[in-house]
Design a protein around this nucleic acid. Sequence first.
DNA 1: GCTATTAATATACAACTGTATTTTATTTCG
DNA 2: CGAAATAAAATACAGTTGTATATTAATAGC
Lengths: 219, 219
Amino acid sequence: MTPPRKAAATRKSRPPGQGRKPAISRQDVVDAALKLLGPHRSVATLSLREVARAANIAPNSFYRQFKSIDDLAVALIEQAGESLRDIIWKARSRITEGESVIRTSVETFLQQLQSDQHYLHLLLREGAVGSAAFKHAVERQLEFFEKELQIDLIRLASASKTPIHNADLVSRAITRLVFSMATSAVELPATLHPKLIDDTTEMINMIMVGTQTLAQSQK
Amino acid sequence: MTPPRKAAATRKSRPPGQGRKPAISRQDVVDAALKLLGPHRSVATLSLREVARAANIAPNSFYRQFKSIDDLAVALIEQAGESLRDIIWKARSRITEGESVIRTSVETFLQQLQSDQHYLHLLLREGAVGSAAFKHAVERQLEFFEKELQIDLIRLASASKTPIHNADLVSRAITRLVFSMATSAVELPATLHPKLIDDTTEMINMIMVGTQTLAQSQK
DNA sequence: GCTATTAATATACAACTGTATTTTATTTCG
DNA sequence: CGAAATAAAATACAGTTGTATATTAATAGC
């Protein structure tokens, strides 16, 4: 379908001198890889030739876009991160009502996971396997998530006069928890998703109550 | 009356009919695979031939011990689970003092991770990639961990008169958190481990305070 | 000793992998 | 146009993979 957003031009567009016009773009290769992947297929199992086949290019043409499969994987992760940031944004815009911030966010997150352009799964599962560059790329995206969450938490705290203790740890813990639970969701039948949402919400709630209690007792 | 019998074989003792004596055991193959693995090598990258080579057997002899590489992987996970249970036991025996239960446990966990017989890493990282059987095996070991933790939590709660709310969710959340943080530890230089222990301890502390506060407010 | 039974190896094969080298196609500029 | 430059494909190669089939080795019971 439509890739969520055009990837920021990581490569500067070369000055169009003379020569043959490129027939395929980096994004074409990424899209081909994405078609191969899915909730149950790991990026580690992709071979260069297979991706090239899916993109309808000769094996060697792959090298013109990426220097290796790992390079491709990193690009995939970065796009997944963008997709994730979209989701956060969506969740935020759905709040504002009198509803529970936590629950709404968790729901949005898991809904997006189901609708699935194969993006999120990469971030969920593959942070601990693969090349160093790959792992680092995943770590970076998670940190973005944590950062944004932390800002939200602080804003929320000052708005509702409920103090917060160690906002950085809170956001980190919540991030880890949500990602871990979401990973389980992928393997679960959809009928159990509501319970998983309940559970996750409750876990986060514990952390929030905990940090608030600690903040008050230290005042 | 019972005739003296030879001690039970390691795994499946096959009825000792006639025929050639086995030269290698399942465990030999597992050990060979373990030597290949390590904190930065995923089980997904093991090939049957490579394992056979490491075990000094012909590729086809592998099939006598395991029906596939996935089968081997499941066996690895189960042994990792046993190792994990040893760690828990060790952590428990180190408590009893007046020290913090949480901190001592987290410390023991991470120390074991460093000393490393390559076992734990499997459980930490690979729960979301690989075959369905493999993922299920990992999930099962994590559930063991959760179960034991839950029992501990309940015992602790009734001993210290501090009530606990949703002990199952608490143990699940803590398990996920610890595993996630431990996964990060593997990639981190050892100098940062103390901070990571501090952080993890604090996160767990938040959850504990949260559940206790909730339990009291609901009384 | 002979034979049945099992264990392990040897050989073979087709498929696939990553990449080096060569060839062809297409475009732009002088 | 023709030359230069670039993109893509074609060809080739050495390596690995999983497994099917056939062969050899060793043991236990008769």
